[in-house]
Design a binder for these strands. Structure first.
Length: 311
DNA sequence: TCACGTCAAGCAGAT
DNA sequence: ATCTGCTTGACGTGA
């Protein structure tokens, strides 16, 4: 098991998701921004390794407007050596990487042009991971998409559209259950059709399920992952106790996490903690899990030259 | 320096 | 009709 957090580090004082307005687009500004973002990503990954946080979601804003028609810049070539260096660091330290395109990426849209734009966005995400030389265990997680008034038809459209996605991109795709439209069961059904692994979101499942227990849910999604996909990924967040339902808590509830880990102790998986305070909660979780002798399977970084050890 | 209107993109549910 | 959340506020103009 590796533990990680998404996109942003609030401790080290740089951002890898800096962007700018489309109106102010220029090649110079793009180059400068990507330079900054890659430098910051490097610093975040170094921080993560020092703190045994070996699962990280790379922001979709790493290369702003990369999939927009305005971008004619060959950022892959220009930043090639930087991407390779980061990728080498990731592999040397056994860091697991994911990406999560935003809500505008809709494979199953009724509107074919939205699908085409979404495909460009997915190609961009895959190119980031390709540029780093990462294998197919580096995943791009997507939701099924909209319902458009007919769920069955929208799921069939999802399957047909996935068949049109190039293998270089599709090999990285994983489909995640969401909190309103598509349950874990739906994702499993789609996985059977498309062979895409299912990324299990614990919180989404709690608010949108067909009555499966946590154990049943794990046995369902777990077998959708093949060896080439790496260890299954799980998204975990604590719901905010007061206020709007569906929003995320500011900090992690360690007791709740402890119960979750206890219930799932027979499975090995990489755990993404989607908590507002990001690396702070992830650190608490790593320390807690390390102290707890029952959990023997967390991967922690070595601080010397050898890449990692399993305790 | 700071306030604040606005920002590439879509959907669904609440108000 | 308009607003809000989604994984997340921050860009950048105008004063």
């Amino acid at each position: 098991m590796r533990i990680g957090y998404p996109c942003i580090n609030r401790t080290i004082g740089c951002r890898s998701d800096r962007t700018f307005r489309l109106k102010s687009y220029s090649e110079e500004l793009l180059m400068e921004t990507v330079q900054n973002n890659l430098d910051c990503l490097w610093k975040i990954l170094e921080f993560n390794v020092r703190h045994n946080l070996l699962f990280f979601r790379i922001t979709s804003d790493l290369v702003p407007f990369a999939s927009h028609p305005i971008c004619r810049f060959n950022w892959q070539a220009y930043f090639n050596s930087k991407f390779r260096r980061i990728g080498t660091f990731i592999k040397a330290n056994s860091i697991r990487i994911s990406m999560h395109p935003d809500q505008f990426t809709l494979i199953n849209s009724i509107d074919n042009s939205i699908f085409e734009r979404s495909l460009s966005e997915l190609v961009y995400h895959a190119e980031v991971l390709d540029s780093m030389g990462l294998d197919s265990s580096a995943k791009i997680q997507i939701h099924v998409g909209g319902v458009y008034g007919d769920k069955k038809e929208s799921m069939e459209r999802f399957v047909k559209r996935v068949e049109r996605i190039p293998q270089a991109v599709a090999r990285r795709l994983v489909v995640e259950n969401d909190d309103r439209n598509y349950t874990l069961r739906d994702c499993i059904d789609l996985s059977n059709e498309t062979e895409l692994p299912v990324l299990f979101d614990v919180f989404h499942h709690e608010v949108n399920n067909l009555g499966e227990t946590l154990g049943e849910a794990f046995s369902m999604f777990y077998r959708t992952w093949k060896p080439r996909d790496g260890i299954p990924m799980v998204d975990y967040s604590s719901p905010r106790l007061e206020g709007r339902k569906g929003s995320h808590a500011e900090s992690i509830d360690m007791k709740r996490l402890g119960r979750f880990l206890e219930e799932t102790r027979n499975y090995d998986f990489d755990l993404m903690l989607e908590i507002k305070d990001k690396e702070k909660s992830a650190l608490k979780a790593v320390e807690s899990v390390r102290r707890d002798g029952r959990f023997q399977r967390i991967i922690i970084a070595r601080q010397d030259s050898t890449p990692f050890k399993v305790i």
